[in-house]
Design a protein around this nucleic acid. Sequence first.
DNA 1: CTTGATGGTTGATAAATATCAAGCGATGTC
DNA 2: GACATCGCTTGATATTTATCAACCATCAAG
Lengths: 215, 215
Amino acid sequence: MSDESFGRLVRGAYVQTFPPAIELISEGDSADFLHIVLDGMVELFASWNRRETTMATLGPLATFILAATIRDAPYLMSARTLEKTRIVLLPSEDVRTVFATDNAFARSVVAELATCYRTVVKNSKDLRLRNSIERLANYILRHLDTADGGKGFVLPIEKRRLAAYLGMTPENLSRAIRTLGQYGVEVDGNRVTITDRADLERLAKPTPLIDDPGH
Amino acid sequence: MSDESFGRLVRGAYVQTFPPAIELISEGDSADFLHIVLDGMVELFASWNRRETTMATLGPLATFILAATIRDAPYLMSARTLEKTRIVLLPSEDVRTVFATDNAFARSVVAELATCYRTVVKNSKDLRLRNSIERLANYILRHLDTADGGKGFVLPIEKRRLAAYLGMTPENLSRAIRTLGQYGVEVDGNRVTITDRADLERLAKPTPLIDDPGH
DNA sequence: CTTGATGGTTGATAAATATCAAGCGATGTC
DNA sequence: GACATCGCTTGATATTTATCAACCATCAAG
């Protein structure tokens, strides 16, 4: 975007550091600020009728919630910090103003929105087409760390949150993990290790049309 | 958008009429055309591992699939006609060209994308937070025709497709309908009538943050 | 050290949902 | 009019998932 637009955005913006477990926004609230995670971790969640579910977990450089800001509509999700988190807050009105005047910015917003949209669609396919064990198996395959030769990784979130994200109860996640033992998955605390990727893939049947975060 | 941009878009575009049950696009294909429904009905669906689910049903003036066109990425969903359907096909390259040069068009694309995004998020909440009977109850409440005093409506799609959209089997939809009889829902063929909206709402607990299509 | 809180696990059981097989009723074809 | 097809429904049963209660390990506070 132009320097002028950038200045305009930055003028009213501020950076704030939040402690863990702070609810940053609540679904239904009006979109006063566009949030950008600089450091730490944020959970997007939604509630209905005394039930709650995790919609996504965000790390550094993720934005939320862009669509509500652009549309000037109420948030559809709530957000809370999972750990000490630093966040940029951009007043929604400034974002809309710059969006209306700076074309390069507007196009960047589209790129970001299109990515978010495709992410949610993939998530929806995952939920609709797979059962809980298949979802867990694919989650593991998606998170395998290329750093250690694709042999394992450390769960970035608590298991109860992972369970909520995968659409199951913590009890069921426990059992699902045990079931995956037959497919070469070993879980010790937050450490996940696999011994036979091919075997796990035979069960998980991953596809880029659901599991590739980039595409 | 400008007349020039419009001309550019229209130049390579064409309108085509398709018979029922034609697969217009398949997930995984590259996004050659942006589609706009003029008349008729189109089902967006997705498949994995010999399972299939309905993601959405589109009527006149809906577009698909915008995000893939903008990002020049493969379709995440397939689409088929449910009846005789007239569709505008806009070459993706033209859409991207006009998107890059016409600012008003780019902003309209954002508005459309933001709406699509929010629709999918609401859909995801519906699936994650409600069981099948609650989903059906809310579906009925959403579709109550204001025309006939909110007393009923005609199902726009076959029941087996409704079942797939609501994330259940046709057998289960049948039983769910019978269960809703206790809450004043009468279904005769495709005709749905309710006798006690308040009663149904006590079960369905609708909320604009999931069920309001506009917001 | 105790103590209490918390996240996780396990087993028993219940509820929700899917599967399979059969049958029904409307529709269209020959 | 006989017949096949198709969408839908029903009943019986199996599978998946949730719930409830108990217990375990860890960790921090007193």
